[in-house]
Design a protein around this nucleic acid. Structure first.
Length: 489
RNA sequence: GGCCCGGUGGUCAAGCGGUUAAGACACCGCCCUUUCACGGCGGUUUCACGAGUUCGAAUCUCGUCCGGGUCACCA
């Protein structure tokens, strides 16, 4: 068996928005190619001139770069099958369509937009099923010549077989058969001269020697049209790999194709929300694919090593933000501390713009607790401004604290801390532990009131010592006195 | 509506004729502990339904139901 070089392609249209569904398709295309030692191609499908968006191609490049999906061929890096932008390939397609016309496998259609619209309207009333009514399919040759000669606007449509059925094989869904009568005489070349997506796709995939056509399974039912095109040209049919859809959960509990109403569904949105690129890649890799080995944390190279097409599932998967968040926490916790500090610095500075103090203490309390960096400002706001809080925050059953002994603890703590100058976490720890021992109370009885007074909150990131250390001596003492006043009031 | 594809806990899922039906997220409880988080331990919750085939079905077949996709000069 001859091993052909595996080639996959990511063929987005530049819409200015990278949906996670598209990203996941790109990921699988990359993984299929790379796990088989193949080539990953980027091709821009901009045949819809009405929908062109400025700067959209850059968004595609940036996204791929951020997640590490490096393409081997593409508009920016070149390759021997270029150009890789369909608008630059415009002249390639028409001759192929004309060849089909000559061979009787396609035909000119002069139907107006209005006629087509009324056709669709009739369809909705149930009078007619299946898009185009093949009005121009058998126009006399002379009539076609005449219309052409007076420059009547036209499209070229594929002449579909009316009887029989078409069967194709999909690497994940198996063998699928569709009756030819379900197939419409689809447009190949639009009246503006550009090819349709379906046509350009087939031509380019063949010309670029794509071996695996990977796409969402919304294309499943139109695949026979592709096959008929390949057959019409006598070209080899690629391996189809259709991917299960990514769904979103609606408020009423139902699910539908993931879209904006489900929250952030664009790569850029997720990044803005505080998800790491590697988190997103790892998570979406697992939406619709399962490794042989029972594990979930994978870097991109590890995914390449473990990926195989037979692990792709058929059923749609619901995008779960909870699990995404968990993954993000895992990635954050596994970072080296320097990286955590570097990455969280912008968020630290939102609260403490003027000074760079105690970053390492902040990092040590935050790294195990943070699941998204954007949570940081809110989590540490209390360090900047003491929240107002009621005295009964001091009461905690488990720590055996009440209003009376909390006041005593605070007074004792203030006494010790006033005479402490080494304000490191370690020293504060030692001094306070000594005090608890001396007072013969459990640590919690002393530390609960200290932490409440220092933070003004019952639940805090980090413990009393870390909070005091970050606050510094002066502010710490000030807050402890405020607490004491509350208890005495 | 026609056609196509799915259906294992709330979610992601393993499973390919014989298992006590993995694992993860979420949830609950316990432990650790100066709160929370992390970490550790344990728990609740599943084979859509009905017929077959078979000694034996989550696994095979058919039907039903449910869900999704698709029916453009959009990709």
């Amino acid at each position: 068996m001859s091993e052909k070089n595996v080639r996959t392609r990511f063929a987005p249209s530049p819409t200015g928005f990278m949906h996670v569904g598209n990203l996941r398709t790109a990921l699988y295309e990359y993984l299929i190619a790379k796990s088989l030692g193949g080539t990953f191609v980027l091709r821009i499908e901009d045949t819809d001139q009405e929908r062109l968006v400025q700067g959209a191609v850059d968004i595609i490049y940036n996204t791929l770069e951020q997640v590490g999906l490096k393409h081997d061929e593409g508009p920016d890096v070149g390759g021997e099958f270029g150009p890789y932008v369909q608008s630059e390939r415009k002249d390639i397609y028409l001759p192929y369509a004309e060849q089909l016309v000559r061979e009787g496998k396609a035909y000119y259609c002069f139907c107006t937009k209005e006629r087509l619209d009324s056709l669709h309207a009739a369809k909705d009333d149930g009078e007619f099923s299946g898009g185009y009514d093949r009005h121009c399919r058998d126009l006399p040759k002379e009539e076609v010549e005449r219309l052409l000669s007076v420059h009547t606007p036209y499209v070229i449509r594929q002449r579909m077989p009316i009887e029989g059925s078409t069967t194709f094989d999909d690497a994940v869904y198996g063998s699928i058969t569709i009756e030819n009568k379900e197939l419409e005489d689809q447009v190949l070349i639009k009246s503006d001269g550009y090819p349709t997506y379906n046509f350009a796709n087939v031509i380019d995939d063949h010309l670029m020697q794509i071996t695996h056509v990977v796409r969402g399974c919304e294309y499943l039912t139109s695949t026979p049209k592709y096959n008929l095109l390949y057959e019409a040209f006598g070209w080899e049919i690629p391996t189809y790999v259709h991917l299960p859809l990514i769904m979103g959960k609606n408020e009423d509990g139902s699910v539908s194709k993931l879209s904006k109403r489900h929250g952030s569904t664009g790569f850029a949105d997720l990044i803005k929300e505080g998800y790491l690129p590697e988190t997103i890649v790892n998570y979406i890799a697992l939406l619709g694919w399962c490794p042989k080995e029972n594990r979930e944390l994978f870097t991109l190279p590890e995914l390449v090593k473990n990926f195989s097409i037979d692990g792709i599932s058929k059923s749609p998967a619901v995008f779960d933000y909870d699990k995404l968040t968990w993954f993000n926490g895992e990635y954050i916790r596994s970072m080296p501390e320097e990286q955590f500090v570097a990455d969280s610095m912008p968020y630290f500075k939102e609260v403490f713009p003027e000074q760079e103090k105690n970053w390492h203490v902040l990092a040590s309390i935050l790294q195990p607790r943070v699941t998204k960096f954007i949570q940081i400002p809110e989590m540490i706001a209390f360090l900047k401004n003491l929240p107002d809080y009621p005295a009964d925050f001091f009461v905690n059953k488990k720590s055996k604290t009440n209003l009376e002994n909390s006041a005593v603890m605070l007074e004792e703590a203030i006494g010790v801390l006033e005479n402490t100058d080494d304000w490191s976490v370690e020293n504060l720890h030692d001094r306070l532990m000594e005090l608890a021992q001396k007072l013969e109370v459990k640590n919690g009885t002393l530390l609960w009131p200290v932490r409440i007074a220092a933070a003004g909150m019952q639940v805090t990131p980090g413990g009393a010592m870390e909070i005091l250390a970050i606050l510094g001596k002066e502010e710490s003492l000030r807050r402890l006195h405020i607490g004491l006043d509350k208890l005495k009031a």
